[in-house]
Design a binder for these strands. Structure first.
Lengths: 212, 212, 212, 212
DNA sequence: TATGAATGAGACTTCATTCAT
DNA sequence: AATGAATGAAGTCTCATTCAT
């Protein structure tokens, strides 16, 4: 606002290049997720991004701000990537199993799992990160869809669900918790069969609990 | 070769002091849990333990071995601390809620939560740690007690539980997952009321699902 | 990749100061020659050069590279210092004695002798150094001049020399070997008289062997 | 003398074991020759010898004394190993060539070459070593044999040698100097053919110079 | 006498950050 | 705005030596 006017004829006073900023964030994301916060050096980030070190400091101030920017950015991307497909075939067990599988697939994908580990690790050391994470908690598009699904089932009499939000959260947490344990927090791959089993067990529990 | 050399073998004269070893582990535990692996310096550990740096290296070889020793030791302590109280009042909902509360209390206690965060953070960087953790998974005394409880309920006709192990795992995971999210992975305290609510919600789900 | 990054390439703004590099090499040369490789700390080199430690690492990467740079540099200087004075008075014994004295003077001068000792000591530990030294062997300006001198004598009929290169090498090696032994590898000074004796003995042997 | 009496019946007051001393020297010799003085740790020596560290200090006082003991010991062994075979076939060139080959073989053998490099490297740092080496210089059995050989040749009129000692020294130095340069101070092997060439060139020079 | 646990100093190297250009 | 050379602090680990047994 103060620097990017539209008037003609000003000398080219070298604006902070958004392209470089993006390159830095991309490089930092890769390295942070791969190696963790402390293990990643600003030098390495600058080199990976192909920029000078001062450029990094110019854009982000210090290493911590850059880290927070990376977390924020990555979270935004993930959120956007949550495609809202949730079939309603009239068979709650099948539908919820499928939904849980999608949850697993999303959360255990390498970058997201890495972000999760990284966030947990750095949580106590960056108060700002706590605020960031707290704000996000529960505001998940997928969970909202599952909530709606439970509401529909209740309306249709397929299930009897008093608190659809709670049910959606339970399905999600249950699936995730077991998925994370089985894959050593996302460091090991999850076979299709195992993923299905986990999702099915969770969905089955919910369906049984809420059978009319 | 290493013990006898040229002359006849004589008994070793001086042993590595177990007291110093314990002091080092205690100091390392405190600092690692507090600050994380990378942020903790061996210098600081030695100072905290009141020993020389080389004493640390003499006992553990390098920082990573010390770290693994800390994890192992802490895990052992936790396991031992799991007192096996699990009431059977004939009211599954109440009993399982109480059990879940105990789970929460144990796992969200500051040192254990810190160890959990630390372990997750370092998992990708220490293959040995993965092995350690994998071996531990599921071999939990508390879970076994809950499993037995479900079996009893099934036998008594209070609940209908085909797979008691699965049920116990589900109760545990569900409780833990929500507890961890709510406390920001154990970095924030959990009020008694909130703890009860979480435990109750989970226990309620299980009981409903398995009602005869 | 490393030079352009995202934006358009701009000329590098700040160059590694050649003055600092030179100061580091000078300091390292002094200390390495004085104390040897292992005994010399990078800290001490940086202090002697009046720069920060990282400046040393920025310029040379690690201690070994710095060491090789020192050897290379010192060798270059020596080579350059070899002034090509080799009188031809028509008296081979006198001329070759004088030449041998010059060889002695050059090779037993404290810095060059020290470099020689240092190189020999480190040869087995730095393969790169072996390559460096192998390449240098025999490419000595002084030896070439002596070779020419022998050729001239042969042409003039003063001596009968079939293999002038061999003769030059023999004069050089013989002189050096005895000079080094007598001075304890250059650690002790060599009196003028002794130097003359050594040079004369060697030259005399060559002249006698090649008398027509 | 004061401690190793022969009288019977003294209580076994634990004498300094000569076997351990020998083991320490052997271990130290191996490691010093292999890695150099600074690079070899007392720890490693004690481990290699299979004794405690204090035993090393008990026997030798400190690392430097141990080093000097190693040099002294190794020198003694070499000296002893110099078998005095020097043929006299009446053909000076052949005999001296053979002698020079033996010199080469001895001096360029890996352990002796290593000792030579080590000694040169440490010469400036251990004044005691200088004294040790100075005393030894020229007191070489092989050289004495060659000296005698030259005297015999002179007596028999095969050669004309005024200073047989000088001639022997020249043959030795010349051979050694070239041999050392060619093998990079004994770090590289010397082919039989090359060894012969070097010895022959040196012997030839001497024979020519002293032809009657 | 012999052991090896323990020490304090110091080794090489890398870090986040600033400064001169 | 952007570069990367330079800094000073701090990192992990090893050393020669001593001390308690």
């Amino acid at each position: 606002m103060s620097s990017s006017g539209v008037g003609p004829g000003r000398p080219p006073v070298r604006q902070k290049s958004p392209a470089k900023r993006a390159a830095i964030v991309a490089a930092a994301t890769k390295l942070f997720l791969d190696q963790g916060y402390e293990r990643t050096s600003v030098d390495a980030i600058a080199a990976e991004a192909g920029v000078g070190k001062q450029t990094v400091y110019g854009h982000f101030g210090d290493k911590e701000q850059l880290f927070l920017a990376v977390v924020e950015e990555t979270r935004r991307e993930q959120e956007a990537a949550l495609t809202g497909v949730l079939q309603d075939t009239g068979d709650p067990l099948a539908d919820l199993t499928a939904a849980a599988e999608l949850v697993l697939e999303g959360v255990l994908s390498p970058p997201i799992a890495a972000l999760h580990r990284l966030t947990i690790a750095e949580l106590p050391h960056h108060p700002e990160l706590q605020r960031l994470w707290r704000d996000r908690t529960g505001r998940n598009r997928r969970e909202e869809l599952i909530t709606e699904y439970f509401r529909n089932c209740d309306a249709k009499g397929l299930l009897r669900v008093d608190d659809a939000e709670l049910a959606a959260r339970q399905l999600t947490y249950l699936t995730l918790a077991e998925g994370r344990v089985v894959t050593l927090q996302g460091t090991q791959p999850l076979s299709k069969a195992e993923r299905h089993r986990i999702a099915h067990d969770a969905a089955d529990l919910l369906v049984r609990a809420h059978r009319p």
